[in-house]
Every structure is written in C-alpha cells, then in structure tokens.
Amino acid sequence: MSTAMLLSATTRQVGRTQLFRTAVRRSYATEAAPKKPSNLPLYFMGAGVAGLGGYFYLNSTGKSVITQEKSPLDPENFKDFKLKKIVPYNHNTSEFIFELPNNEASLLPVASCLVVKSSDPEALKDEKGKPIIRPYTPISPPEKTGELTLLVKKYDNGNASKHIHGLKEGDTLAIKGPIPKFPYKVNEFEEVALIGGGSGITPLYQIVTHALSNASNRTKFTLLFSNVTEADILLKSELEALKKKYPTKFDVVYILDKPPAGWTGPTGYISKEVLRQHVAPANLNEKVKVFVCGPPGQVAAVAGKKAGMKQGELGGILKELGYTEDQVYKF
C-alpha cells in the first residue's frame, strides 16, 4: 500500500483513532508548566497503519511520515547507549554522538531533557557514595534517526562533565528520559525571548530549531546569549545559519564578559537596558514568553532563583520590567 493510500485510510479512521501519548515520570528536572497541547509528535494509530506495526506522526514541517512504534529511550529506567563518535567543538566542549538502536529516532518531545549517569555502578559517585545524575538537553532533532547528540562543556568542578569527556568511542553512558520541561506549541506566542548563558543554550536551541523548522511558524524569536569570551560561544555557526535562513523570525545578540578588540556588541552582565532594548515588552501579556537558562547566578539576576526543581518566584530584572510568572519559564 502506498503512503498516500495509508494517509487516506488513516484520515477515514480519525473518528476511531486514539491519541497515543507516553506518560513519563518527572525527576531531576524543573517542574513542568501546566500541560498544554503539543504538536510534536502526534501519534495516530489507524487500521492500515497498525497492520504495519508502526505509527503516523506529524513532524516539524507538518509532513506525515511512518516511524517506529516508540522511542528507544525509557522514561522510567536508565539504559546504556554506546558512544558512536566524539566531535571536538572548542577548547572545553565536544559533541558526544550516541548510537540509537535499529536506526530509530529519539522522538523527544519539545521541550524535554534527559538525565545521565555512569554505566559503571562503581564510577561517578558523590561523597556519600550515591550515583551522580545530571540533566542534559540533546542538540539533535527528535526525528534524527540512529543518533542522539549531547553537547557537553567540561567544567573543572563538574564531575559528570569530566566523566563524559573521559569516555572513548565504543564506551557507554546510562541515559533515562525524556524528562518533560515546557510543552512548546508552535505559534502559541507572537514574541519569544531566549536568555541564555554558556551551556544553558541547549534547551533554548532545542525550542528555536523545532519552531523555526515548522513552515507555519509565525513567532519571532530573539536570543540573548551571554558568554565569557567569543571562543566560549557554543553553536555559533548553527545560530548564524538560523539567522540567515530566517531573517525575519530569528535574531541573536551576543553578550561577552571579556570582548575582543573591536567588539561592538553588549559587554558584561545582561543588563536591564539590554533586556529593555531586545525583549518584547511585558504589556504584550500572553503574546510574549521569556525562556531563561544559564548559570544559577545569572538566572537569579535575570528572573529570580529557582526553588530546587520548581520554578520559584519571579524576581530579578524581568520582575523589575513588569513581567509576570506566567510570561517567564526558567529551565
């Protein structure tokens, strides 16, 4: 049966189909925002499709494709995944590409993350002997087949990041997920500001690449990305490519603590003036959303401290500028 015939059969069965969603348990992550409908992935189990043992889903471009029955990831249990390739990115960051079995896709909902720990139960423990578990947001798209890519910055005091950087191709890492964060829906907002620092770029990158790849997207995104030096800017070439491809829908402003000679962009900390200049005003109400992810000190200064795994009260510069808790989400 052709794909067109399958799609036709599926359409006739819509009245009898069941929306299939996988329930996942939250742990080691920020408390999810109130649940809203999400458009990736949408699974429809139809008579013709079920006979093939697969599902239709609408990908980020709105095209229907046949894919595997479920994600190879497990939200309840850690599974070992083999490190396929390491791609150095800069002086302290590399891409770690893990192999997904049977050339499957991760099907991670946007936005969500994973949690990782050592495959060796005797390695990567804290001072109490408990496994160290840390969250990471993949930079590979949910529909990417056969691979899952983590962009990991090595920190001097980061035990998990040092462990991952110590892995060799062929080694494994224990991964659990997805861990849902914010259920992003295309065109839910007119303006979205993404405020990030350092490796906090990854969940922001996940959202913006997902949204911009949808042909129906009308939301304007502005990224304010703070780093120490120009060499520390992660995903810069990818961000510049997005800016070139979507000039009316995406803009990026880099802020550096230690700028090079001739730097014309903002410097120092993300200030009230920078936010006022580049972020859509709070009086747009539900039409504007601000996502924040970065070092704890930066998040606190911009949007107030998080309360453990919960959002915490809104504070910082965004509160001073009149934004409300409904308008801000802290990863």
Rank of each mutant, 00 (worst) to 15 (best):
Lys128His: 15
Gly129Thr: 05
Ile132Pro: 06
Ile133Arg: 01
Ile133Gly: 03
Arg134Asn: 05
Ser140Thr: 06
Ser140Glu: 12
Ser140Ala: 03
Pro141Arg: 05
Pro142Ser: 06
Glu143Tyr: 12
Thr145Ala: 05
Thr145Cys: 03
Gly146Thr: 01
Glu147Trp: 05
Leu148Lys: 11
Thr149Asp: 07
Thr149Arg: 12
Lys154Met: 10
Asp156Thr: 15
Ala160Asn: 02
Ala160Cys: 10
Lys162Leu: 11
Gly166Asp: 13
Lys168Ala: 15
Gly170Phe: 11
Ala174Gln: 14
Ile175Gln: 13
Lys176Ser: 09
Pro178Arg: 09
Pro180Met: 13
Pro180Trp: 12
Lys181Ser: 14
Pro183Ser: 02
Tyr184Ser: 02
Phe189Asp: 03
Phe189Met: 07
Glu190Phe: 07
Glu191His: 13
Leu194Met: 14
Gly197Gln: 09
Gly198Asn: 07
Ser199Lys: 08
Ile201Met: 10
Thr202Asn: 13
Thr202Glu: 07
Tyr205Ala: 04
Tyr205Lys: 01
Gln206Tyr: 13
Val208Phe: 12
Thr209Gln: 05
Thr209Met: 04
His210Asp: 09
Leu212Arg: 12
Asn214Cys: 01
Asn214Lys: 03
Thr219Leu: 07
Phe221Gln: 00
Thr222Asp: 11
Leu224Tyr: 08
Ile233Arg: 04
Ile233Gly: 00
Leu234Asp: 05
Lys236Val: 00
Lys236Glu: 09
Lys236Tyr: 03
Ala241Arg: 13
Ala241Leu: 08
Ala241Gln: 13
Ala241Lys: 14
Lys244Asn: 07
Tyr246Gln: 03
Ile255Gln: 06
Leu256Tyr: 08
Pro260Ile: 09
Ala261Asn: 10
Ala261Tyr: 05
Thr264Val: 13
Thr264Arg: 14
Gly265Trp: 14
Thr267Phe: 12
Thr267Ala: 10
Gly268Asp: 11
Ser271His: 13
Lys272Arg: 13
Lys272Pro: 01
